[in-house]
Amino acid sequence: MLSKMLLGRYIPGSSIIHQLDPRAKILAVVMFMAIVFFANHWTGYGLLILFIITLTKMAGLSLRFLFNGLKLILILLLFTFFMHLFFTKGGTVLIDGGFFTIESEGVINGIYITIRLAMLVLITTIMTLTTSPLQLTDAIERICRPLKAIRVPVHEIALMMSISLRFIPTLMDETEKIIKAQSARGSTFMTGSLKSRLQALTPIFIPLFISSFKRAEELAIAMEVRGYQGEEGRTYYRVLNWQFRDTAALIMMIIFGIILWMIRQ
């Protein structure tokens, strides 16, 4: 179940989308979030769907793979659809169930909004599938750098993010070890009422917290002896290389936005 989930996962590859600068991808996604709202009739939504399909192909991902991964948010999409179906009024009455009515505007609006939401989720999924978390962190740090002027600790936040990413697998291993150790001592985690299952988690979390604090302390010492003194006087090993294709990608996104704007009614 968990392995099928695509949200936040990264699949290494060498497609043109993979090779784009992560900053370009983030900016393009932000633009797309606005562009999605330009569409207001069938042609517009058709173009949006076509655009996402093209993008998926360019990223070397299969559509079926992408949709399979999205099953988890299906509930959210259906919920949106039914909300509009029942509560948007206008047009001809299709079904009159007495205390509720379904009207044509509701159906059309429901479909539109659901497509919008699905497209937004798909484009962010394409971004995270083609960009390593580390690259994303770097890109966020660079894009947010101007925020330092208003005293946002951009470098520190980025370092925190990258250390967290680095420690996720380590802590997963540790959790697994603790679960095994506690199971060997007779703890059960998978049976009983919800309350007793939650209570059973205590003997997992307490050792995990204790060891995390110890790790944090050792890591802090290791960082200090390696000369970490914050951002000042620091150089960067990883550099992001903005290339022509990144500019081209953004221009294409703008052109796509203009087209959608022009065909709106």
């Binding site: 000369g227 970490y228 090993y237």
Partner: peptide, 28 residues
Amino acid sequence: FQNPDNQFVGATVEDDVAFGLENNGVPR
């Protein structure tokens, strides 16, 4: 140090090796 996991700062091998150099402002 003793515990290999708790002294790894970088998210990849080369990032970790470069970490100390970054701190000391070594040119790229």
